[in-house]
């Protein structure tokens, strides 16, 4: 089943220099293991292909049912140097939530995931 990340998680992003951070939080604690399994470092690198000049770091924050990603080289130089509308990476959060996951039907049903 196709599941939109937007329907099972929320997110907030911020900046540090030319790095954007995106924290992704499961809408329900029981959805966190699935999100943690699907949102691998490689998956996120692929998702943002062409938008970053640097790499991606991934951190697990299971106590908050969250993952934190650092997207390096995401902000066109960052801060005041950047010419981008989103110079501070404020909406990289929703860019991340555009991801669509392929979840086995049984698992999706058992977890009560909303279909895309």
């Amino acid at each position: 089943m196709r599941v939109r990340l937007l329907d099972i998680a929320h997110a907030r992003s911020g900046d540090k220099g030319d790095t954007a951070n995106v924290g992704v939080i499961a809408n329900k604690p029981e959805w966190y293991p699935l999100i943690s399994r699907e949102l691998t470092q490689q998956r996120v690198v692929k998702h943002f292909a062409g938008m970053l000049t640097g790499g991606v770091d991934r951190f697990e924050v299971p106590n908050l049912y969250a993952l934190n990603f650092l997207l390096h080289g995401a902000l066109g130089g960052g801060g005041t140097l950047s010419l981008k509308t989103d110079a501070q990476g404020k909406v990289y959060s929703t860019a991340m939530l555009r991801m669509v996951l392929d979840v086995p039907d049984d698992e999706a049903r058992a977890l009560g995931l909303p279909a895309a």
Binding site: A11, R12, S13, N21, G23, I25, F59, N63, A66, N68
Partner: peptide
Amino acid sequence: SEQLVYEMGDPHAYITPDVIADFTTIH
């Protein structure tokens, strides 16, 4: 939760002049 992940770096080490806070211990 949304505010806790805002501008988060390595959640294990939020470095300040007084202490290093471990955000993975927050309940």
